[in-house]
């Protein structure tokens, strides 16, 4: 399988990465090289094989359903590029 320019632009938008014509063209070549490389997986017989979900057979650990952390609003916004009174500030999204 290979990707065309329109697909590259669509995927870039899905990934929220702005691309110009030149970027998209370059990426198309790179992506097709990688997709060409992974193409060899189609020769493996995977019938009846379970997909791997965990490398170590272990039950997922669950903690007790209680609040054991929190009250860290200041820490959480401390690295924000733009914040006010412990809120993250973003461009206006609702008219």
């Amino acid at each position: 399988m290979s990707v065309d320019l329109a697909t590259v632009k669509r995927v870039a938008h899905l990934a929220r990465i702005a691309v110009n014509e030149e970027d998209a063209n370059r990426m198309m070549g790179e992506l097709n090289a990688i997709l060409g490389f992974v193409e060899q997986l189609s020769e493996v017989d995977v019938s009846g094989v379970e997909p791997m979900t965990s490398v170590t057979p272990m039950a997922m650990k669950k903690r007790e359903d209680v609040v054991n952390d929190g009250d860290k609003a200041e820490d959480i916004v401390a690295n924000a590029p733009n914040s006010d009174r412990n809120f993250f500030l973003v461009p206006k999204v609702v008219e």
């Binding site: 493996v44 995977v46 094989v49 379970e50 997909p51 791997m52 490398v55």
Partner: peptide
């Protein structure tokens, strides 16, 4: 498919 191949590698 890749995750199935991973099972085979393991």
């Amino acid at each position: 498919r890749a995750q199935k191949v991973r099972t085979l590698i393991k």
